[in-house]
Design a binder for these strands. Structure first.
Length: 271
DNA sequence: AGGCGTTCCTGGGGGC
DNA sequence: TGCCCCCAGGAACGCC
């Protein structure tokens, strides 16, 4: 499941290949993949050269002079460049460039969507700060959390609260900070919040440096994420905690499969 | 405000 | 071996 590090890896991979390309058209292979391409914007889509590619939250942003295209991979989305049609039956959309090359969007479970906006305002309004951005300071994080009474895992997964985290990196960050995922957010001691702040950043940075955790099949070069070798709790049910040796438990928290060491991670209840 | 259920999808795992 | 059932999971939305 692509989270911030996986999306960043995809951006790093495709950016040098498509900046400067001119978009001829987007072919929706599966009819729901283009989420909000209203006809007016579509017809005025004349400034068609890609000027930048970057990540915001879990979106891949392809920027044109007058508009942006945002791609969300959701669970199983993949992007890769190719010259000709691929044989994959899971392609849901194809970006055709004037150079005759194409960017393929492949998505087995079909949750991924492509959005068209005039600018970033709608996405920015619905998403919290970037955990690796300069504006995301410890003081800001403390201020965001100190009035929140949700359980900490649900809060960290909420893209409106903080951008980019998903199930894997939330579990990893909470384990590293010795916080039980079912803790009430504003009951977690300040020292632990400081640790969490540091651990969210370092976990994401380490994962980016390993090209993410999810196995991403780029088809062309077959690169896959290597952070899976570094996971401490996620996916390690019944295995020994690498810190204390106690058996890792799999729970359900915030409706998600959740991995936790009940010996290392303390649950902070409502005060 | 926050928790919970539902929806979208399909491959794959569990049960028998 | 084979078949059917059911579920994971990101995010939006509605309901209480």
């Amino acid at each position: 499941m692509p989270e911030l590090p996986e999306v960043q890896t995809v951006v790093n991979y495709i950016k040098p290949m498509i900046v400067g390309e001119r978009l001829k058209r987007i072919m929706p292979v599966w009819n729901k993949v283009l989420y909000n391409f209203d006809e007016d914007i579509r017809r005025s889509f004349k400034k068609n050269q890609i000027i930048d590619v970057y990540r915001r939250a879990k979106f891949i942003i392809i920027a044109f002079e007058k508009h942006i295209i945002a791609i969300h991979l959701r669970m199983t989305g993949k992007l890769y460049m190719a010259d000709k049609k691929t044989s994959s039956k899971h392609v849901t959309a194809v970006f055709e460039f004037e150079s005759k090359r194409s960017l393929f969007f492949e998505d087995v479970r079909k949750f991924g969507r492509i959005y068209l906006y005039k600018d970033m305002s709608i996405i920015d309004a619905r998403h919290g700060p970037e955990p690796l951005g300069e504006n995301f300071t410890l003081e800001l994080f403390k201020g965001m959390i100190n009035h929140r009474k949700r359980n900490i895992k649900a809060l960290l997964l909420d893209q409106n609260f903080l951008s980019g985290l998903g199930n894997i990196y939330v579990d990893e960050s909470l384990w590293k900070s010795s916080i039980h995922p079912n803790s009430i957010a504003n009951s977690v001691p300040q020292k632990k919040i400081e640790a969490l702040f540091i651990n969210i950043k370092s976990t994401l940075e380490d994962a980016i440096s390993q090209n993410g955790t999810t196995i991403i099949d780029f088809s062309v070069n077959g690169e896959s994420g290597k952070y899976s070798n570094y996971l401490s709790v996620y996916g390690r049910a019944k295995k020994a905690c690498v810190e204390c040796g106690y058996k890792i438990k799999k729970l359900k928290v915030a409706g998600r499969g959740t991995y936790v060491c009940l010996k290392c991670q303390k649950k902070y209840k409502r005060r």
